[in-house]
Design a binder for these strands. Structure first.
Lengths: 147, 147
DNA sequence: GGTGCAGTGGGGAAATGTGGGGATTTTTAG
DNA sequence: CTAAAAATCCCCACATTTCCCCACTGCACC
């Protein structure tokens, strides 16, 4: 059951944001309300449910740590990763560092996207700009990626 | 069992539209009244029964999400996707975003087309205009595609 | 004329998203 | 070391939205 759809929820004054119910329900129940937040590859916050995160860790475990690139990559990925449990209302709290990275402000709306194995929390303006700057259109991407 | 035929049903004040019985009956019973709505490539709403949609997801699952193009593609594809179960009257509800995209208004008729593995919900005027603007006639299209 | 299914409309109940209060813990300053 | 300040956690309460059920109409086929 992959994550899909989008929502615009507000980040409250305490930096909390509600995970939309449709995405919460798509999480594996065994991950039991636990997620890992980290920096996205783009200027966004990635949210992985615990079970999906563990698969990423498994991939990192495969890396050859005698290679400099591999060491740097796992450093960057793990450095910003943070485990959280959802509160009784299904919210996570964003840290200042993650909010600054993704240009997300308290008391404003943020865009939440489902992207298959993880969620993404975006500043809406940043997202739209990023999508416009991207090399290809949706249609040409489809051809490139799916052949 | 492919979808075929057309119908004109009204979108009620709550954004709900009835899936014609002949199309509902053409769905795989294992998909159990669940469909996924999303943006079409043209200005229309696509409706996939769950089993057909899962084949699309299976293809996305193959992608390497550490590649930028792949992330962007699945972002765009999944962003507008909404899973829905038909209500006891066989209706789905369209979101504001999808209605805006396809120029579909509440309390008006909309055109529902069966197109093999999915349904399409159109604003009738938009549909007719789109068909006129398309390069070829029905006849020449047949030659190009099936030739 | 009756029966059954298909499409349309509306109303009540439950769930979702949001805001805030207060207690506990952590940090900072004196 | 102590006390004040700040941050964090956890719970409760509200309002809006969404969902789900029930009822009505009309057409079609008996």
């Amino acid at each position: 059951m992959a994550f899909k759809g989008q929502a615009e929820n507000t980040v409250d004054s305490k930096g909390r944001i509600a995970i939309p119910a449709k995405m919460r329900n798509a999480m594996n129940p065994e991950a039991k309300q636990t997620v890992v937040l980290t920096r996205g590859f783009e200027k966004t916050v990635f949210v992985y449910p615990l079970d999906e995160w563990q698969e990423i860790e498994a991939q990192i475990a495969q890396l050859n740590r005698f290679q400099k690139d591999a060491r740097n990559f796992s450093r960057q990925l793990l450095r910003w990763a943070e485990e959280q449990t959802l509160d009784s209302q299904g919210r996570v709290s964003l840290t200042k560092e993650l909010m600054a990275f993704a240009s997300i402000n308290t008391s404003e709306k943020a865009l939440i996207l489902g992207n298959f194995d993880h969620l993404e929390i975006w500043n809406k303006d940043v997202f739209e700009q990023a999508m416009n700057e991207e090399s290809g259109s949706y249609e040409s991407l489809a051809e490139t990626v799916m052949g």
